[in-house]
Amino acid sequence: MAALVSLAVLSSAGCGSNGEGTKAPSAPDGVSVQAGSATSVHVMWSQAPGKAGIRGYTVYRGGTKVKDVPAATNMADITGLEPSTAYTFTVRARNAEGALSADSDEKRVTTPAAVAEDRDAPAAPAGLRGGSDGARAVRLSWSAPPGDQGITSYDIYQGGSRIHSVGGDATTARIGRLRPGTRYRFTITARDAADNVSPAGGAVEITTPHGSGDDPDTAPGDFRATTHAADGAYYADLSWLPPKAGTDAPEYQIYLDGAFATTLIWGGEAPRGRATYSVYTTREPGRSYRVKIRAKLPDGNWGRFSTERTLVTGGGKP
């Protein structure tokens, strides 16, 4: 098989505006802001359910827009701030028509004072432990490092992805947006006002219990695969319906003949309904390929594979 591009980033055109007749989504709730260092804060909020039609969120500092994030994200790091300064943040949701919600509740935070040049990271948090809190959440607790470590926040990781932050005086956290019947691995690091980050403490693994009828099918649906020829090459034409994971899936992996071929990331909003994509396969006619895809879910894990389809490149010259 000829080599394939390892990453594809696509844009999906949005439509509509805040014009008359467009119903705006509800404002995000559960907004919180935590200072991460003397010059950064971490903004978090509760993700709207998939049925709300949310396509993204916008974070504002005062009345100034500072960051846009996709619908699958419910947190944002805001950097370049001033030490010992009070800030206010709000979050607005955006739907597929481009309509923005009202502002969320306003949250205030004050960055800690700047410190003298400091390159010494705090010690790692110890004793991380936890358990499930229903089918879609876990509760974690840990012990702060001994002595005055100058910790301003703790960062919580699920696998290799940072998913949550809490203040330096906290030793517990609740992590939601998980899937029933799934095993998760968590670690935690400490951060000081100079943005030095400790090594990760010991990991804890937790399996959420199966919920009652609320474990969705995470495989892309109605997966189809055909082929076409263009510019001296053959392409696999793929189409599918997003998995029923509670929100959009902005990232997919494509496998050919059982091996990873490429990653597809929607550069803008993920398509509504059926998605389509063409991937290069070969310049040779009569080649048979087995193809399947899977989506990255809101909890950071990869969902189940779609049904595997077989296609054969056409005869003759492309």
Score class of each variant (00 low, 15 high):
266 W>Y: 14
185 R>Y: 03
190 A>C: 05
200 A>Y: 04
254 I>H: 01
210 H>V: 04
218 T>S: 15
202 G>E: 14
260 F>Y: 15
207 T>F: 02
253 Q>P: 00
262 T>C: 02
276 T>I: 06
216 P>S: 10
195 D>E: 15
218 T>I: 05
231 D>N: 13
207 T>V: 13
230 A>E: 11
253 Q>N: 10
243 P>F: 07
245 A>P: 00
183 R>D: 12
207 T>E: 08
213 G>R: 12
260 F>V: 09
255 Y>W: 13
240 W>D: 00
211 G>D: 09
217 D>F: 06
274 R>F: 07
203 A>C: 04
275 A>L: 07
235 Y>I: 06
188 I>K: 08
237 D>Y: 02
236 A>C: 08
209 P>V: 10
196 N>A: 06
229 A>I: 01
192 D>T: 10
188 I>R: 06
228 H>V: 00
253 Q>L: 07
229 A>F: 00
232 G>N: 10
248 D>Y: 13
215 D>R: 13
184 Y>N: 07
237 D>K: 04
274 R>Q: 12
250 P>D: 05
233 A>D: 07
193 A>V: 14
252 Y>Q: 03
184 Y>R: 05
227 T>L: 01
240 W>I: 05
226 T>N: 01
272 R>W: 11
209 P>G: 08
264 L>K: 03
211 G>C: 11
208 T>Q: 09
250 P>K: 05
213 G>F: 05
212 S>E: 14
211 G>N: 10
272 R>F: 12
188 I>S: 07
267 G>R: 11
223 F>W: 01
190 A>T: 05
229 A>Y: 00
207 T>I: 10
193 A>P: 03
208 T>I: 13
199 P>G: 14
211 G>S: 13
228 H>F: 03
214 D>M: 13
251 E>W: 02
258 G>F: 01
192 D>F: 11
228 H>T: 02
209 P>D: 10
266 W>F: 08
